[in-house]
Each structure stands twice: as structure tokens, then as C-alpha cells.
Design a protein around this nucleic acid. Structure first.
Lengths: 248, 248
DNA sequence: CGTGTTATTGACCAACATCAAACTTAGTGG
DNA sequence: CCACTAAGTTTGATGTTGGTCAATAACACG
């Protein structure tokens, strides 16, 4: 399908993502290809949108990792989600005018801004695009639910294992990981902010997972050495990711 | 607006909810009024939909409370959200075919099933209805995000206080609470499952909140005696609920 | 009135937080 | 290419929040 329309690499990224769940016709792809994108570099640590902002555009991740987070009083940060290339972390801003959380780069990377106005047009003109984008926001919510369950009811070891499994599966789905090896761009402090733990404890858990032969890490590189083992350790079941093709 | 069209009380509930955020025209309201509803009674504790199901309808809460939950191994339950009349807890099933969590009655109540098929028609024919429903799912997600922050980074006291604040604000918005008094249909064990705590600890926290004069409770009745106090105790800021009219 | 559910209490314990210091790694400029 | 620095990781010691267990008390309901 996407072969018949001339696409910039950036538009291709978007189309490819949406096509993972919804088959798009040539018309839809042409319409997406015509979407004006404004490309911007992202620095690690720097906010892309901030809680309280009223953005006029959504942001498509092209390269690098992006995170959503909330502050909970006194420097306590909670990371709400991690976003990888192809995703639109603040798609919700299309209908929720005011940001209730912030968006920041995790690594050096690139994002593309898609203005709300042309996006509305597409959404209301092409049911398939509407469905695909709506679905994206729903999968987002599904991941939030799983994180609630994780943070609420799982032990530190389970939470960390679960998070690693989730990241691996999502990265594999967009070919950013193979052979159970990924470039994990998170510091232990960031893993802590995502799992609701302290950095020190995350460190100890990671050591434990290494000692148990479940993972191997050298620098940013992280390999899941024992996939069934890590899945079990994290009670990980990918159903909540609602992927069409199970990556496993 | 809604006055000009003849609406059953059940349809009125739905229209009213959607109109809290999106102004609907007479056409849209007529279309909603024509939606076939299948009414059903709900028993407390009984599942309405179960994880793994592939429902062909969404469920509108008419009376009583409904909860979404996930099991996390060995009888560990995590409540993901609490739903009050007017809400459609499983709206996401419209685009996510398989349920990744379960839905159960919390109290005796009534729900209306809306089949997916006529709902698709409405959504793709009326942009306003699409926007209103999409928005509902996005607010859902916003509440999930806040819960992640709560469970991940707030103390037991903060979590419980926060949850009571949220429930009060949402109930007020649909006139199910006034004067900071609500009928709280949750047992302490359920509050525990929602906040990721143990029932025993929830009990102690509630006693503390009572002792501090923040809340008063007699049976199921719960009064927030010191609203600013409880808000502060729970770091509660209603922005994430994205209400048009601030209830405070 | 009984009977089952929910709330409350106390004793004890485990998981994880906090603090502080040492060590390692990666990045930078000369 | 090396020295210097800042960021990230690791370690140990100690503290606290909240969990678990078990028993009792208070309700709610038929």
C-alpha cells in the first residue's frame, strides 16, 4: 500500500505505525503524506511540552526516546510512559486542551510537530485514520492501566522485570531491537521514576536479575538472556499491548 | 438543546454526560436518542465483562457504581478505576477488541448496553459525537495517569485523601453529591485495592483523616469536613479531570 | 437473634527508602 | 591521547512505611 505513494521518511514512519493496526487505503496515505510536519531536534532532559501548556500541535517521535511525567510535590517525579519512534505521545492534546503532564526528551532525538488543525480535518474526513489514531490513544490508556497494576500490586523485582519486557516487545515491533537486545537509554534513576521505586533499590534489583541470568547489560546495551524467565519474573503478558502480530 | 428532542431517561443520561464537554446539535441528539439500549441490572461483585472477552457492546452506567480491575497473580487485585452513572467504562472496546481487564458491579445498579455497530455509525457520521466520545476515553486515560502518579509516588495518606477528593468532584459534577457529602459504596478493602495498599492500613489512614477533622463518616455516608485540608493532604488538583466547569 | 461481612486493634516483620560515600564510566577540552 | 569532570552506578548502614497475621468488635440483614 504505502509503496504507491511518495512519502518522506518522516511521513513513512507515521504511516507505518498506523498501519500496524489499521489497514489504510491509498487515499488515506496520500492525505497523511500531505500533512505538514515541522521537524525539531530534541535534547535530553529538555521539556517538549509542559504541564499547563495548551499546545496547538501534536508531536510525533522520529528518533530517540521521549517520556511523559508528572511531578508529585517536592521533586518527586513519576514517569507515566516511555515513547519510542513512531508514537505520538501527546495525541490527547487534540481533544484535551490543557496538558495535565509534561513531555521531555530522554535521549537526543528528533520529533515532528503536526498542527492540530490539519489533523482534525484528516480525522473527520477519513474514518480509518480516525480509528487508527483513536486506537493509538486507547493503547496508551491500556499501557497506563498495566502500569497502575504494576506500581500498585507488584514487587520491585516484578516491576522492573515487567518494564524491561514491555520495552523489549515494543521496540521489537518497530525493529529497534532484535535477538532480545536493545539500547536502553534509561538511567537507573529514570527506571526508578517509572516504577515508583528508589534508584538505589532499582540498582539492587537489576543486579539480582543479572545474577539470576535473566538479563545481561554492558553500558546502554541490554540483553534479555532468559526471555521466559524474565516474563515470569515480571508476570508479563503482552495482551494489554494489543498488538496485531505477537512478538515473542 | 436536549429539551427539543424526546429522550428516555437512559438516553438523557448519556446525552447529558456528553454535553458536559461538547455542545451537541439537535441532529446529534436525535441520533443518540435512536440508539438501541439494552438495560440490565447489575449485582455487586458480579463481572459485567471479563478480561479476555471480546464484547460486541459498550456498557453505559445508569445507576450504582462500577469498577474496572486487573488481577496481578495470587489473588492480588488492582482496581483501575471507579465509574459512576453517565460513564461508559468499556468504551475502548469499540477499537480494542479484546478486554485487557474486567468490569464489575460495585453496588447494585443498572447498566445499558450499546451495541458497537450502531455506535460506529454515529461516531463516523457525527464529528461532534466522535469528539465527545473520544474525549471521554482521553479523560479516562488522564485519570489513569494521575493514579499512576498516586500509587507510584504518594504516601498512603496522600493516596487515600486524593482518591476521596477525586470521587467527590466527579460525583458533584453529576449531582450525586452536595455539601461535600457522598454515599461512598466502597469497603475499605476496595479502597485498598484501588490505592495499592492493604485494607488494614487503609483503615488506619481513614482513622487519621477523621481524627484530623478532614472527613466525617457514618456508615456509607462520607462527608469531607475540611475540603482545603483534604485537598492539601492528597495533593489534589482537579486539572487532570478536564472538567469544563470547575467544581470546588 | 444468629450469621456473615466489614471495621478495628495490636504485635511483629519485610520491603523498600534514605543517606552518604566510593567507585566507574563517559564525555570534554587541552 | 590524557587528565579532568560530571554523571551514573554500586555498596553499606540504618530507618520507616506499610504489610501480614490473628483476634475482636461492630454492623447489616434476613
Amino acid at each position: 500500500m504505502s509503496g504507491t505513494v511518495d512519502l518522506s521518511p518522516e511521513h513513512a514512519r507515521l504511516v507505518r505505525k498506523l498501519e500496524t493496526t489499521e489497514r489504510l487505503g491509498a487515499d488515506e496515505i496520500r492525505a497523511l503524506a500531505a500533512l505538514p510536519l515541522q521537524i525539531r531536534d530534541v535534547e535530553p532532559e529538555s521539556d517538549i511540552v509542559r504541564e499547563g501548556d495548551r499546545p496547538a500541535a501534536c508531536c510525533l517521535v522520529l528518533e530517540g526516546f521521549v517520556t511523559r511525567y508528572k511531578m508529585a510535590g517536592e521533586g518527586q517525579r513519576q514517569i507515566l510512559s516511555i515513547h519510542i519512534p513512531g508514537e505520538i505521545p501527546d495525541l490527547q492534546s487534540l481533544f484535551l486542551k490543557t496538558m495535565d503532564h509534561s513531555l521531555a526528551g530522554l535521549t537526543r532525538g528528533r520529533v515532528a510537530y503536526i498542527a492540530h488543525t490539519p489533523l482534525y480535518d484528516l480525522v473527520f474526513r477519513y474514518p480509518q485514520i480516525c480509528a487508527a489514531l483513536w486506537r493509538e490513544t486507547l493503547i496508551d490508556a491500556a499501557i497506563f492501566r498495566e502500569w497502575i497494576a504494576s506500581v500498585g500490586r507488584r514487587s520491585a523485582r516484578q516491576r522492573v522485570a515487567h518494564m524491561l519486557c514491555e520495552l523489549m516487545v515494543r521496540l521489537k515491533a518497530v525493529d529497534l531491537a532484535s535477538n532480545n537486545v536493545m539500547q536502553l537509554p534509561l538511567t537507573q534513576a529514570e527506571v526508578a521514576d517509572a516504577t515508583g521505586l528508589s534508584a538505589v533499590h532499582v540498582n539492587r534489583v537489576l543486579q539480582e536479575l543479572r545474577a539470576d541470568g535473566l538479563i545481561i547489560s554492558r553500558g546502554k546495551m541490554l540483553e534479555i538472556a532468559d526471555w521466559p524467565g524474565l516474563k515470569a519474573a515480571g508476570q508479563f503478558d503482552p495482551a494489554y499491548l494489543h498488538m496485531v502480530v505477537e512478538v515473542d
